[in-house]
């Protein structure tokens, strides 16, 4: 079958009948309204004076109320400027870096989990956890944490040599994957103090590095899980052909697998970018004056005077603007990915 006829057929399947079209558009328009109305409300709130908000509701600028750039002025050029510009730059750097790193590391791991088999020995893992517990207990008791770590590692290595061979039970790829995703199950509230102490000891508090590394660790499981499904759906034959031609694993991964999974990669990237872009609690603790990110500025608009809706609206708008641009830009790639998907069979 030629590509052309394939595309033609495809159109047949996906082209809706007129009635389906009407229903589809009705649903789409309703949902568009559901999505856009709150955003419209944000936009007009950002143009209101406090008095207009408090004695509202007013809906249409110039008709209902006189719009003003008062809040925009305040956020971008006024008193809040210092709490806007620098956090903004931080947010951009932290989110982009951590999302990119998460995508690279996560996609490799996901590929590995779909194409290789790992059999970590249960005994080794139990030993490892035991050693870690030992480390924590030692540190709690008051031993210098570096010494405690060294002791734990030594105990782990010695015992592994002696004991590991006695355990035969081993785990598989699914267990690794589940373990990874389980790392997201504990709410940030529970881990924020330990992470704070960790970075304090490393002297990395209030740096972008701390945030990047944390978000990387937090988002990796999601990348692995989403990409695992995409890689699983890619037929293995192509890779095998390439391998017979002498291509290395790395080469196959880079030039065959990744291009085939562009839609998945793009969607995944978008998520982790958004997660990192918007994270609040960890950012609150790991940052001080230098590395603060924008969600903190937004949350801070609710202080002793009650929520400052007008400033908040401005901040939310300027915060989503670049992400929307990225989404529009990447949407094309999702479309391209579609074509690849169509040809691949």
């Amino acid at each position: 079958m030629s590509v052309k006829s394939k595309l033609f057929k495809r159109k047949n399947i996906n082209a809706p009948s007129p009635i389906a079209k009407i229903i589809s558009y009705t649903i789409l328009v309703i949902w568009t309204f559901v999505v856009l109305f709150p955003l419209y409300w944000l936009a007009i709130t950002s143009l209101k004076h406090p008095i207009d908000v408090n004695s509202g509701p007013y809906y249409i600028p110039f008709v209902d109320f006189q719009p003003s750039l008062y809040a925009w002025q305040y956020v971008l050029f006024g008193d809040l400027q210092n709490d806007t510009i620098r956090p903004y730059i931080n947010t951009v750097i932290v989110a982009l870096t951590s999302a990119t790193l998460a995508l690279i590391l996560g996609a490799s791991a996901a590929y590995a989990l779909t194409r290789f088999r790992y059999n970590p020995k249960l005994g080794t893992i139990l030993l490892f956890i035991g050693a870690l517990l030992l480390d924590v207990v030692l540190t709690m008791v008051g031993v210098n944490w570096a010494i405690a770590l060294a002791v734990a590692v030594a105990v782990f290595l010695i015992l592994m040599q002696v004991l590991a061979k006695r355990f035969h039970r081993s785990l598989g790829n699914n267990d690794i994957a589940f373990w990874l995703i389980s790392q997201r199950m504990l709410p940030p509230v529970a881990v924020v103090i330990p992470i704070y102490i960790l970075f304090q000891r490393l002297h990395l508090l209030d740096t972008r590095t701390a945030l990047i590394v944390t978000y990387l660790a937090v988002n990796l499981p999601i990348v692995v899980w989403l990409m695992r499904d995409y890689f699983q759906s890619i037929p293995i034959d192509l890779e095998e052909t390439a391998a017979i031609d002498g291509a290395s694993r790395y080469r196959i991964f880079l030039s065959i697998v990744l291009p085939l999974s562009v839609p998945g990669l793009v969607a995944t990237f978008l998520f982790v970018l958004v997660f990192a872009w918007n994270e609040y609690l960890l950012a609150l603790f790991l940052s001080g004056a230098n590395a603060q990110t924008l969600p903190l500025t937004i949350a801070a608009q609710n202080a002793t005077r009650g929520p400052q809706w007008w400033y908040m609206s401005v901040l939310i708008l300027i915060m989503i603007a670049p992400v929307i641009l990225i989404a529009i830009f990447l949407e094309r790639y999702i479309a391209k990915g579609l074509l690849v998907g169509a040809v691949k069979g």
Partner: peptide
Amino acid sequence: LPMMITPVG
């Protein structure tokens, strides 16, 4: 779009 707004927002 809704996904891109920070949850606090």
